[in-house]
Design a binder for these strands. Sequence first.
DNA 1: GTCGATATTGAAATCGATTGAATTCTTTTT
DNA 2: AAAAAGAATTCAATCGATTTCAATATCGAC
Lengths: 350, 350
Amino acid sequence: MKQKRTTIYDIAKALNIHATYVSKALNEHPTINQEMIDKVKKKAAELKYRHNSFAANLRTNYSKICGVVVPKINESFFSNAIAGIEEVCSQNGHHLIICQTQESYKKEVEAVETLIRQNVDCIIISLSLETKNGNHLQDVLANGIALIQFDRYDESILSFIVKNDNREAAGRAVKHLLDQGYQKIAYIGGPEHLKIYIERKQGFIDMIREAQISIPYEYTCNISLKREESRKIALELLNSPNPPDAFFTASDFAALGVMQAAKDLNIAVPEKLGIFGFQNEEFTQYLTPTLSTVDQKSMELGALSAQLYFSNLHNKEVITKNYKTEIVKCSLITNQSSDRSKKGSPIPKM
Amino acid sequence: MKQKRTTIYDIAKALNIHATYVSKALNEHPTINQEMIDKVKKKAAELKYRHNSFAANLRTNYSKICGVVVPKINESFFSNAIAGIEEVCSQNGHHLIICQTQESYKKEVEAVETLIRQNVDCIIISLSLETKNGNHLQDVLANGIALIQFDRYDESILSFIVKNDNREAAGRAVKHLLDQGYQKIAYIGGPEHLKIYIERKQGFIDMIREAQISIPYEYTCNISLKREESRKIALELLNSPNPPDAFFTASDFAALGVMQAAKDLNIAVPEKLGIFGFQNEEFTQYLTPTLSTVDQKSMELGALSAQLYFSNLHNKEVITKNYKTEIVKCSLITNQSSDRSKKGSPIPKM
DNA sequence: GTCGATATTGAAATCGATTGAATTCTTTTT
DNA sequence: AAAAAGAATTCAATCGATTTCAATATCGAC
């Protein structure tokens, strides 16, 4: 059985004043003089009083809780984003309920449902891979809950969007490969119902076009973000009559698969094959050779998402409908897997 | 402004019955017949009714929320533990509020305070490195909130404890090193106000004693879990007149530092130096050579922690005071860094 | 010393669901 | 047909904080 907690009534009784007064004192209501505020606070501490969020939230209809929905909390991109969100939220006296979708659409719908039920003030979400559209987010808006999408979003839903300059960053990564002398660059991307993968591919195409080179049709593939799949795809391409001399992938896990394929076939990286990933997973720096990747500034991305809530949506009487899309610029991390300048056996950075 | 939600009163009005009845129907109270239950549920769905947790929780004093406090959600040990906790909690209709302490005592106290305020039913915690004692957990118990400590615990606090067989697992790891022919094994551990580090060291000592070998005093060091620190310590030891031929460390990050030191000094691993870590961080499998480590079965550990709540503490009128300590057995992952059987240049597993 | 203005404090309603007791309605029993 | 038993439904109180409005106290001015 849970203990009965100290309430404002207990404090009121102890001080022989009215509970209303206690509430006001604790909230430092302007009509209460400082002396009383101190007195009440002292007694509250003495009686180990703790504000009961439920009662307050029921009355005010605000929970000071942000719901966060991400595919996996243990992918570093997301865990860093959460760290950013948490920092900003706790600065603003808000707490986090975190839900994981495991890339499942069904779990995502459930998570959103749960968060609405929990009466969160705001939902910060990154869609699952299975999610084909964001219609389930309409419910969030209908309940007057602030909505912010980051990284993986559906732009047809009215909300703030925080994303990377995926297209430009992809372009810069490909440019780097070209600058290193790679000519036949293959691309392994993700499912194209998600905008980010369209953009990354577009950046790849932009740069290939700009360099006025042409690549065979089979060099671009949109289906795989996972290690094993990418490994197979890379093996096939590398064994073909006209193999690529570099890979740009939309995920580090895909790049890892490519690296594995190169090892399988005893192809030297970066000498014979350049590899460039995307996402800056922690493991990229532990590989041999270390993997070049695009850092999405995930922590900043998360922090910015939360900031948008506090500066634009929080406590705003009328939600102004001028939703913006904020862009966080990626930075390139060029590691050994794409760096031909130091030829010969690379010395691990470690 | 947040929307006003549909309430049981709205449903009651629509069906011309009493709100109480709606509540009971939705909860499938035994005195309500099925026909009515269906009718009410149908109308509820029609009106997009959502149960308001706050109102219910205020009344019942139960929130169906478990608070989780961990040092860092982005260390794989913890994120896997959280995944295990989440699975069990969601199976039991509970949600998670997750707090990060960043290994800071102050943040840990705040997190616990916050969770009590949020009226969570249960707190599952793993202490921060800075935490010297668990006195702040006394408040949790005083509020009748169930308490479960895992991995890093203070045994003087009355609670369930879920931990690994640290001592035995450490012993097995050291045994493995001995079996591989290493004789001069050094140990790098963590701060000994945390029981787990005492235990791991104890396991190390047990096995050294059992093998009837002696090691110099300076071979054991308790101060470092971090990469850079360990690297320095390893460099010093390896440069000493009587260098160790193997390291057993209480954390993978420390092992990583040792590996780095070996590389700095051009010492072949595992030929000249064996390394064995602890925790099974994801990166261990991406290193060259791959790092041997102890898998703490973190997901099971988390799941078991949550299960203890549901099977022993949840809805129990009198909290029976026979708290138990549950042990989850670790499994050894012997990788290249300690495996002399395949001599010569190791082929990465990848 | 009275009036009015301002500063303090109190009363009462409210948020939405739950719960046990009370009431009404239905069915069975005699 | 009346009484008893049982099922279905409603009543009323409650959880703890907030908030609006009313009441009282305090102070200065004339």
